[in-house]
Design a protein around this nucleic acid. Structure first.
Length: 520
RNA sequence: GCCCCCAUCGUCUAGAGGCCCAGGAUGCAGGAUUCUCAGUCCUGACACGCGGGUUCGAAUCCCGCUGGGGGUACCA
């Protein structure tokens, strides 16, 4: 059996769509699962502006997620070039051949004519079919028009007597009546190919065995099948996977409707996180990152494993209980017949939960490495990073444990880095600015100030005995201590926090808190 | 208008005639653990779009309806 070859053919748009990434992932997995090859081809039939700018983010997304390509940009391959804009000769030759064999024709009809025909068909509630007026032109008439430079396109002559049937890997048997199809343009007036045509030529020339693509292409399939047949190609197998839908809807996820998605609670949560993070690391407004783009997840501190796992489970399942898959396991277990037929709504919450799982598996050293850039960019630690800072972050990350879900979460504990802290006012009022608490705090402060060295144990023992002597419950002091030293009611164990804040700073903060409490 | 696709908890999904008064996950609510939070562990509420068939028996098969979606371009 021939080697399985799949492809993903993005248009260079300047960003990688998260839904497109899922399609790419399925292609990649299917190729890898079968020990085959995955090809990246760039569909730039529209003239492109700046290729680096347009393609860069797409390649970056693949690299970040670790989805390597066997042939394509940067590495080439036996069927190069992999940019449609550089393959014009192939398309032209194929179009010429179809013309010569009478399977395509030069169409001189104006857009207005076609449009009128179309409207008429619609009004009469019948399918629109090409009138094929140009077919009645004699060879000399055609030559005359060409000589006159009359604008024209090349249309594929649909063989109307046929039925087109495919056996889709996901949708099973799908059938169309060619008698209901209009003749599609395959070459523009300027001699450039249309997507439907270029794809057919490329898929065949690149020996693609499985066309795995989003279902919005299902309706392109009969045209492509007919084209393949006209050209004498072996038909690739098809698998039309459902598109990724917007949160809380069944509509295709689109960059243009971001404002609307923000009404969704979980989507909004994600957006807010990004806003906060990008603001702090100087990425705000930079080309506008948003959750429809893969880069968003990278920049906000997701792990490739989290995104990959989430994307995999969006429209695919192994069984009734397995949720967690590493890429390696996915390669082993992925099959097209387990792909779901219905569109899958994108759920940021679920994405975060996979992320959380994979973050918990990550070794401390990797967590540190992931957090450092955020701290550096936000100016929390000196740049370049010095060993002391690194060591401190390691202690901090260890103490944070599972509280760290995204790398950028490290920015939420600014109080370990800055001298000034911000009190959570409600908590301060409740835990510190209360009858007797400042005095209790002051006594404890004196006690630990004279402690030769601070450890979790010594701090805790001091606190226990202090409370005991005064007949106070430890909880009261613990909470007061936490708010005074960190400003917030959340975080690692108090003693751990105090140690992380550091002796001098902790004592100073306690003093400040007592002062502030007495003022109110 | 025409062609095509789809339809199980809010969401992602399991389910290919009896194992299902529907299972897992996520989210939500409550509880336990604990100095808080996170985590972990329990508990709870929440779904087969509707109507007809077929069958002893249907979430599962068939038909219709409704609903949702995609395409309908000299976009991809």
């Amino acid at each position: 059996m021939a080697t399985v070859r799949t492809r993903f053919a993005p248009s260079p748009t300047g960003y990688m769509h998260i839904g497109g990434m899922r399609t790419a992932l399925f292609n990649w997995l299917w190729a890898r699962h079968n020990g085959g090859e995955f090809i990246l081809r760039i569909d730039d039939t529209d003239q492109q502006r700046n290729m680096d700018e347009a393609l860069g983010p797409i390649l970056r997304a693949f690299k970040w997620l670790g989805l390597n390509w066997d042939e394509g940009p940067e590495i080439g391959g036996p069927y190069a070039p992999y940019f449609q804009s550089q393959r014009g000769e192939l398309y032209r030759a194929a179009a010429e051949r179809l013309l010569r064999e009478g399977k395509a024709y030069r169409c001189f009809e104006t857009k207005e004519q076609i449009d009128t025909d179309r409207k008429l068909a619609e009004a009469e509630k019948r399918p629109y079919l090409s009138a094929r007026r140009s077919l009645e032109l004699s060879e000399t008439q055609i030559q005359q028009r060409l000589a006159d430079g009359q604008p024209h396109v090349i249309r594929f002559l649909i063989p109307r007597d046929q039925k087109v049937v495919i056996q889709d890997h996901i949708r099973d048997r799908v059938e169309w009546d060619a008698g209901l199809m209009a003749d599609p343009v395959i070459m523009r007036g300027d001699g450039s190919p249309l997507y439907n045509f270029a794809t057919v030529i490329d898929d065949a020339q690149m020996q693609i065995t499985h066309v795995v693509r989003a279902e919005e292409h299902l309706s392109n399939t009969p045209t492509q099948v007919l084209l393949h047949q006209a050209l004498g190609h072996t038909l690739p197998e098809f698998a039309h996977i459902p598109y990724v839908a917007a949160p809380g809807s069944k509509e295709k996820l689109s960059k243009r409707k971001l404002d609307q998605y923000r009404k969704n609670v979980s989507f909004k949560r994600l957006c807010d996180k990004g806003d906060s993070v990008f603001g702090q690391i100087g990425l705000a407004g930079q080309g506008g990152l948003d959750p429809v783009m893969v880069e968003y997840y990278e920049r906000v501190g997701f792990l490739p494993a989290g995104i990959l796992n989430g994307l995999l489970r969006l429209g695919w399942s192994l069984d009734d209980k397995t949720e967690i898959f590493s890429l390696e396991e996915a390669v082993k277990l992925f099959t097209l017949d387990r792909v779901v037929k219905a569109p899958a709504g994108f759920d940021p919450d679920k994405m975060v939960s996979y992320q959380q799982h994979w973050m918990m598996q990550l070794p401390i050293a990797d967590k540190v490495a992931g957090c450092l850039p955020y701290l550096e960019k936000a100016g929390f630690i000196p740049s370049p990073i010095i060993v002391e800072a690194r060591a401190f972050v390691e202690r901090l990350v260890t103490a944070l444990g599972d509280r760290l879900k995204l790398f950028s979460d490290i920015l939420d504990v600014a109080y370990f880095f800055h001298d000034e802290i911000v009190y959570d006012e409600k908590e301060f009022a409740k835990r510190v600015a209360k009858e007797g608490v400042p005095a209790l705090l002051r006594g404890y402060r004196e006690r630990i100030a004279s402690l030769p060295n601070w450890t979790i144990e010594s701090l805790e023992a001091s606190l226990k005995s202090h409370c005991e002597e005064l007949g106070q419950s430890p909880g009261t002091l613990i909470h007061a201590l936490r708010i005074s030293t960190t400003g917030v009611p959340i975080g690692p164990g108090v003693y751990e926090c105090v140690l992380l804040v550091g002796r001098d700073r902790a004592l100073r903060r306690i003093d400040q808190a007592i002062e502030a409490a007495l003022k109110t």
